[in-house]
């Protein structure tokens, strides 16, 4: 399939990655090679096969939906790049 610079830049945008121009061509080549490997899957006839999503096919396990005090505010904010002690501080959104 055709992997051009535009596709790489679109994927980078969707992935929220800023690729320096000098890395775009290298990643494009990698993607071409990896997709050539992956396209091997097209040889398989998988008509009528159900997708496998859960390898052990466990039943849905549910626990009572109760509020627990899992993480207090100070612990939650402890790893924040920026906070005012009560809230996370982020760049201007609107």
């Amino acid at each position: 399939m055709n992997v051009d610079e535009g596709l790489v830049l679109r994927l980078a945008d969707l992935s929220k990655l800023a690729l320096p121009p000098e890395r775009v061509e290298r990643l494009r080549t990698d993607l071409v090679n990896i997709l050539a490997m992956v396209e091997k899957l097209n040889e398989l006839d998988l008509e009528g096969v159900e997708p496998l999503r859960y390898v052990t096919e466990v039943e849905q396990v549910l626990r009572p939906d109760r509020i627990g005090n899992h993480l207090d505010r100070n612990s939650a904010l402890a790893n924040a790049p920026d906070s005012d002690g009560e809230y996370f501080k982020v760049p201007r959104v609107i």
């Binding site: 969707l14 899957l41 398989l44 997708p51 496998l52 390898v55």
Partner: peptide, 20 residues
């Protein structure tokens, strides 16, 4: 890429079937 619109079935869906 494999999850993006237009390629999902051809790659991700196919791989889930192959996994089975």
């Amino acid at each position: 890429f494999v999850l993006s619109s237009g390629y999902y079935d051809a790659f991700y869906g196919k791989a889930q079937r192959a996994r089975r």
